[in-house]
Computed example of a mutant assay.
Amino acid sequence: MTTCLKKLYKNYLQPQDIKFPEQILCKITVAVVEALKYLEDEHGIIHRDVKPENILLHKNGAIKLCDFGIAAKLSDEKAMKSGIATMLYCSPERL
């Protein structure tokens, strides 16, 4: 993969005061949601650490989700209730 979403924004777009085009953000969002749905439906896994650093982009347009270090099986009740995640990206109810 070429870069992650955070590095693309921080190193290339932000210094030039360029905003992400809405069409690109839509494609990234759809790809991430499809990946999360696939993980849940096919493998019973929730990712639990979706953040810009874990969304990888390739120059050919491929989008991938990475870093399954704190992913959990849906049946693993203890893992589901743990507070492990990147706090900056946690939902308000988790905080």
Rank of each mutant, 00 (worst) to 15 (best):
P15E: 04
P15D: 00
Q16E: 13
Q16S: 06
Q16R: 15
Q16H: 11
D17P: 01
D17M: 09
D17L: 11
D17V: 02
I18K: 15
I18A: 00
K19L: 11
P21H: 07
P21Q: 12
E22D: 10
E22Y: 08
Q23Y: 08
I24T: 11
L25K: 01
I28S: 04
V32Y: 03
V33F: 04
V33C: 12
V33M: 09
V33P: 01
E34D: 15
E34W: 00
E34P: 00
A35G: 14
A35L: 07
A35Q: 08
L36T: 06
L36F: 06
K37P: 05
K37N: 15
Y38Q: 10
Y38R: 14
L39G: 06
E40F: 12
E40N: 13
D41L: 12
E42M: 11
H43D: 09
H43I: 04
H43T: 02
G44H: 12
I45F: 05
I45V: 15
I45G: 00
H47Q: 09
H47K: 03
H47M: 01
R48T: 06
R48K: 15
D49Q: 02
D49F: 04
V50A: 06
V50Q: 04
E53D: 15
E53P: 01
N54W: 04
I55Q: 07
I55Y: 03
L56F: 14
L57N: 04
L57F: 01
H58E: 13
H58K: 10
K59P: 02
K59Q: 14
G61Q: 04
A62N: 10
A62M: 11
A62L: 10
A62P: 02
I63L: 06
I63K: 07
K64T: 05
K64N: 03
L65Q: 00
C66V: 11
C66F: 00
C66P: 02
D67Q: 09
D67W: 04
F68W: 05
G69E: 06
G69F: 02
I70S: 06
A71Y: 00
A71C: 13
A71I: 03
A72K: 14
A72V: 15
K73D: 10
K73I: 02
K73H: 14
K73C: 08
L74H: 02
S75Y: 09
D76C: 04
D76Q: 07
E77P: 02
E77I: 10
E77G: 05
A79H: 01
A79L: 09
M80Q: 14
M80T: 07
M80R: 11
K81V: 09
S82I: 04
S82Q: 10
S82P: 03
I84K: 10
I84S: 09
A85M: 13
